[in-house]
Write a protein that binds this DNA or RNA. Sequence first.
DNA 1: CGCCGTTAACTTTTT
DNA 2: GTTAACGGCG
Length: 668
Amino acid sequence: MDFVLKSEPGAPLPIPPIDFRGELNDEQFAAVTAPPGPLLVLAGAGSGKTRTLTYRVAHLLSQGVRPHEILLLTFTNKAAREMLHRVQDLTGVEAHRFWGGTFHHIGHKILRIYGESIGLPRSFTILDAEEADSLLREAVEEKDKVFFKDKTHPRPGPLFEIISFARNTQRGLGETITRFYPQHEALAGLIGGFAAAYRERKRRQAVVDYDDLLEYWLELLRAAPDVAAYLQQRFRHALVDEYQDTNTLQAQIVDIVGAHHRVMAVGDDAQCIYSWRGANFENILTFPDRHPGTQIYRIETNYRSTPSILAFANGVLAAQPKGRHFDKELRPARPDHEKPYLVQTLDTREQASFVVQRIKGLVDEGRALADIAVLYRAHFHALDLQLELSRIGMPYVITSGVRFFEQAHIRDLVAMLRFTYNPSDAMAWQRIAVLLPRVGDRGAQRLHEAALAHARAHQQNLVDALASNEVLAKVPKESKDEWPRLVISLQQIAGTLRNEKPFKTVEIAIEGWYGDYLKGAYANYTSRLDDLKSLIGFASRFDDMQDLLAQIQLLNSETSDRQVDPDADALRLTTVHQAKGLEFGVVFILGLADGMFPLRRAIEADDLDEERRLFYVAVTRAKDELYLCYPKVNAKGGPATLLSPSRFLTEVSEELHQPLRLRRSWGW
DNA sequence: CGCCGTTAACTTTTT
DNA sequence: GTTAACGGCG
């Protein structure tokens, strides 16, 4: 077995001297310089959590720990980037020298090296969420043709969620359904069979879904004790950001990797907002039990927000049900300013015009647009505002649905790369094949099967087998003309995989059949071609096709900011989830009405605690001014309905905010 | 039987 | 803007 991770032996890296004592407050300093051992850092919002983590890394380096001995785990790509960037600024040590990234990234990296010891094929590829859904749908339909015809049965997406939730929480499917999806109790047996069929399909196609990256990682640690032992001694220090958002699977991984009790877990149970992904803040509460001798450090001085905003945030926390959470109180360090404003508007359109007018005023007062953010629970809550901003021409960036790697043409091209790299990957093949005239899901599958059969019979590469007469016979006659060009293009791509760098392969792919297809398929051909060309640039950062492919799948949700000049002064529109960890001088929170924030679904499911924590996250993003916007009427989607103010507003004392009266001069 | 264009409904949060 | 379901057509 290959035990050699790329390592850089030798002397510790020289890093510039850092005045830890002078640059940190007492609470931070204590955590940063804590002796090795299990450490739990409870960091309130705005208390310098990232700062503490980055200085901890710097401190370890200054103690002679080498970068590759440090494992840094985060939840989002953004957090990973931010952290490594700040470490580099502080110490000059480049990001790539650490093992730092999301759980899924690190899992992938480790499975790439050791996966074969648990039977994972070397050239496995990763499905994104949508592909995983449709693979599950196929698996279900194969076993039970009419399952989805019954409208009381879960659709593929929700069904996937159920199975995924069971996996991430390490519970049996039956128990999961009984406890969390009792409406599907009667289907438990069926669903178990579907999950097994889905697993089998993934195995046959040599593909893994996101959950597999964690599941196999844990399986590896348990089934291959030598690997586990190696990783345990190699990563002398493991640091976990946002520990409150770990699910059972992740917590167990951390427990094993950090078995020598050199884990520093950093988090805030009041900011656990991912329980729909299985996050369980019990993990942070019981961390000291699972790691005897845990030292707990609290960082509660808040440098971000004014006392009034913090008082309001503490008020939100005070409304949490009594029970299991660490008590905390954010302590202000700044002089006071205005109380949060409560802004009542007629509807969401008036809400939009208020926000725009107020922002104009703020800009006149000298506030930079980039220092202002508008937060909301769900993307569609910001529709009116987007319209209004476009109308008056105010620049804004929105982190939202249209994501670079999720655009159809990007995914098509990536599918071609993925299919040539791993020809078993039927989902990738399907995506390409249905672009041909008169080829649908079914035809694509049959073509794949025919090619597979031919390849096996003639000991041939599957891509070459596509050119065989047996396969050609299954191509609809409307596609016969195009077929050879597609196959040649795929062969060219396959040909470059071995001896060329990934960016070259991408180039060849764009110049081949797909480029022609693009011309015919889209009116905005040139701008889409530009996207593909920028993919060449992205690919040039990689030496290895699998790394490139994995990165693309795992960056899937990364937002596209290509058309926006990063230095431009622009207003920020974002969901609360995506705003976690950020801060802005002025924050507007939209749609603070029952049914919007909290979402209607959450109210119906009686799952309000998490929504409240989300509101807490939103409130604590604000440094100087906070506007809480509440539309009285929902005019969207049919008859207007009267809305009640969000219960999160009414459960906080009225003393803690002030009404802002609207001048209705802007009209509508 | 399976494909394709049209229609209708609809949108939580992320890897 | 985007996907799922429907009904007609090859």
